[in-house]
């Protein structure tokens, strides 16, 4: 029996629920061993308007069941992306969303306007885990008004799907989720990395040159499942679960917890074909439990 794994996320029809997470798949041109038939969509490495060099090394360090990274959003800027990558994306049989970043709400809007209509760009994922220079460096994602302002700035400049990637570094993720939904988001990605720190006892300095980094991997999975579940209960738009998914059972936890789809990130570093393995494992679970499609999977979303 063939399982219908297709899913629709805010107007975007995907052939499967397993997506490549931003920053773990580059621009999609360098993961040669992946069986791409299984890839539902790809979210590009985060991009700013202008090119960025990134942070000095060390940029990554492994921690128990996880890794910290501080890459600094190294990238070619929007013009480099349009020139070098979008033309390739336009040939692919899965959609590519661009993860967009900025220092002001207006910059996010400008990025969306520049990319809107570029062949190969199917939508946007807004990274709101950036410091807002107009608010003393307060992260957009920590403040419902700033998160809504960024979402609104992008929404006004494009008719393509707009997803917002939530940060876990908040008191109540539901408040931010609702603010983004009200400002016009089509879907939410939950959750970004947790801010962490690790100290080298030889040098008595932080292991990362940037001092702190984003924690990903299995270490954050239960935290991420909880936050994705909270977000899913707070809104009526789809939520895409992210956080330490290494195998199909992990993805199924997010799906049952109320997510419409998932993104796989760190696992791709360990196993280049992780996305296909997760996809196939979900299909096998559905088949062995008597479901004919992903949409038949019961979700645990109590209303009380």
């Amino acid at each position: 029996m063939t399982i219908d794994m297709s899913v629709e996320i805010g107007g975007l029809k995907l052939r499967g629920p397993v997506l490549a997470a931003s920053g773990t798949f580059g621009y999609g041109t360098e993961v040669p061993l992946l069986e791409r038939r299984a890839l539902g969509a790809m979210v590009s490495k985060g991009i700013f308007l202008r090119p960025r060099a990134g942070t000095p090394p060390p940029r990554i360090v492994e921690t128990p069941s996880g890794m910290l990274n501080a890459i600094g959003l190294q990238g070619p800027g929007v013009e480099g992306l349009i020139r070098d990558y979008a033309p390739q994306w336009a040939q692919w049989d899965f959609p590519v969303l661009v993860n967009i970043n900025g220092e002001t709400a207006a910059e996010y809007g400008e990025l969306a306007a520049r990319l809107d209509g570029v062949a190969g760009v199917a939508g946007f994922e807004i990274n709101i885990s950036c410091p807002n220079v107009e608010q003393g460096g307060l992260y957009f994602g920590n403040d419902p008004r700033a998160a809504a302002a960024v979402t609104d700035a992008v929404r006004k400049r494009t008719d393509l799907p707009v997803w917002v990637k939530l940060t876990p570094m908040v008191t109540d993720v539901g408040v931010i989720a609702r603010a983004c939904e009200a400002a016009g988001a089509d879907a939410l990605s939950a959750i970004n990395t947790f801010v962490g720190m690790s100290i080298d006892l030889t040098t008595r300095q932080p292991r990362l040159s940037f001092r702190t980094g984003g924690l990903s991997g299995p270490a954050i999975r239960p935290l991420a499942v909880h936050l994705a579940h909270q977000a899913a209960r707070a809104v009526s738009i789809p939520v895409i679960g992210i956080g330490g998914i290494m195998r199909a059972d992990d993805a199924l936890e997010f799906l049952v917890a109320g997510c419409a789809a998932v993104q796989v990130g760190t696992a791709t570093f360990v196993s280049p074909n992780a996305i296909a393995q997760v996809h196939d494992g979900i299909a096998a679970y559905l088949a062995s439990h008597g479901f004919e499609s992903l949409s038949d999977l019961p979700r645990y979303l109590p209303r009380d």
Partner: peptide, 28 residues
């Protein structure tokens, strides 16, 4: 010698600082 994440060029974790400025990847 650098720390590495993926080894295949996607994570940008193994940045090597260049004399002309910027970084590229030890793994690629």
């Amino acid at each position: 010698e650098t720390y590495m994440g993926c080894g295949t060029g996607v994570c940008l974790g193994c940045a090597v600082p260049l004399a002309r400025g910027g970084y590229d990847r030890a793994c690629k």
